[in-house]
């Protein structure tokens, strides 16, 4: 490790050296990165759009209020 008093550079070197010296850990990092890519770049973007996304606050309130006061509101109790 290069000797320096700058704490940020020392932390940077600490991490870089740690990653360089990894043996079995590299496979795990590949798995982690692949997993995060699938989760955030594929699943989140193409399959998990929030159902209320794109609506204004008032529209969101209205959508949820409609579900909460749904079709059963006028049914009498048994």
């Amino acid at each position: 490790m290069k000797h320096t008093h700058n704490p940020f550079i020392r932390i940077w070197h600490f991490y870089i050296e740690g990653f360089r010296n990894m043996t079995w850990g590299r496979t795990l990092w590949i798995i982690i990165l692949l997993k995060l890519f699938i989760m955030f770049a594929i699943l989140r973007v193409f399959f998990f759009q929030p159902a209320l996304a794109g609506k204004s606050e008032a529209e969101k309130q209205h959508t949820v209020a409609t579900s909460l006061s749904g079709e059963r509101v006028d049914k009498p109790a048994e």
Binding site: M39, F48, P50, A53, Q61, L68
Partner: peptide
Amino acid sequence: IILEFEFGTNWSNYSWF
């Protein structure tokens, strides 16, 4: 984190409420 995705997509009424 996937559970949090599901809150927004599958359980949006709950998430808002």
